[in-house]
Amino acid sequence: MAHKDSAAVPVKDARIMVIGGASLVGSATVDELLARGAREVVIFDNLSFGGQPNIAHLDGNPKVKVVQGDILKLHQLLAATEGVDGIVHLAAYMTLNFDRDPWGGIDVNVRGVQNVLEACRANKVRKLIFSSSNAVYGYGPGVKGDLVEDTPFHAAGAPPAAILYGASKIMGEQLCRDSFRKHGQDYVVLRYSTVYGERQHYRAANALYIVETHDAIKRGERPKVIGDGSETKHFVYVGDLARANIMALEAPATDVAVNTSGPEPVTTLELVKLVAELSGRPDLQPEHVQPDPTKVRLTSGGAFEIVHKAAKDAIGWEPQVTMREGLRRLLAWRDAATN
């Protein structure tokens, strides 16, 4: 199919759907779309993970339409995507959910993407932004050094649920590529690193380090660090990802997958100490513990960095919020929410 000159979808005055719009990233993306002048934002979400509080502030907004629907039911997607200019697709099972229900994860993360792409084709949606993950590089000792977009997948030594999640994201990306080649469906894949920020939940295996540390400190307990604390994590602030979603829609880029990571990686020991400091309890020194074999904890192996240069080249994006500033915002939000 002949390629168009530009796949850009300007957000101003456009009608954009956010699938999984009641999620952490989804609700931030909806806020950003409204701030950028979207004519209407459609939130499509099955609300199964209790996302209503994330979008409660949008109740009564005439520019927001909430559709409680299921991406596994194609007829619901077909009805909801009529007249939509662009879609940001965020709905997915993450690693902890895969651990509890692998069949459900495969359904949502693979067949769900197929359904979204079919709805795009049927209703001529101009562009799809698909949220993938740095999980496409795998987990375990093989994951080290600079992770760039052509880094291969590593599975050895990692929990099955983590590998199932990463493999499902690889399949989602390839379904997007297949739809572009067969039907000319424009898309951009954004490979998120671990997301954190206001409205943080307890479902992300890596972000648990932040919220569990904060919870322990608020109880006056020493925070726990698994192992020696040298494990690397690469987080990205939720507001930076919301911007990335909009920039991917508005960029002329298509048929591309890029990393969207934070400014720099952090070790788990550095992270726990930073949370303690920002919580006003730097005196609570971390306690080193052995991993709990009953819990899914993602080990990174060697030190790594998720390189985001390709995102700057493709859509003009780079992260703006440092780990310290993002954590300060998250902890302030958590403290306010519990007071």
Rank of each mutant, 00 (worst) to 15 (best):
K63G: 05
K127F: 09
V189W: 00
L72G: 03
S261W: 00
G197S: 02
G220T: 10
L96V: 13
D107G: 11
Y187F: 15
P286A: 13
D5W: 05
A79T: 03
I217L: 12
L331A: 01
L128W: 02
F44Y: 08
H154S: 12
V321S: 00
Q200R: 08
M94W: 05
P160H: 06
E325F: 03
Y93V: 06
G145A: 13
V67D: 02
I43V: 13
L269F: 08
A7S: 14
P319S: 00
G60L: 08
G21R: 09
D99A: 13
V110I: 15
I55P: 01
P141L: 07
V42L: 15
R199P: 00
G302Q: 08
A257H: 04
H234S: 03
A22S: 13
D215R: 14
V41P: 13
E82H: 14
A28G: 01
H154K: 03
A135N: 13
G142Q: 11
E40H: 05
E212W: 05
L249G: 07
I43L: 04
E40N: 07
I16C: 11
G105K: 05
G83E: 06
P319C: 02
K312I: 04
D5N: 12
P10M: 07
G37D: 11
A38T: 14
R111N: 12
G326Y: 01
L33V: 02
A92W: 00
A205W: 02
A248E: 05
A244G: 02
P152S: 03
K182R: 15
A91F: 07
E173D: 15
G51C: 06
G220V: 12
A28D: 03
L284W: 03
A332S: 13
A158D: 12
E118F: 12
E231K: 12
T338E: 15
M17F: 04
D283A: 11
T95E: 08
N339E: 14
S300Q: 08
N61K: 08
D255L: 01
R328E: 13
L271D: 05
L34N: 09
V11Y: 09
V188M: 13
G280D: 11
G326M: 02
Y196W: 00
G316N: 06
V84G: 00
G69P: 00
G26Y: 11
I19Y: 00
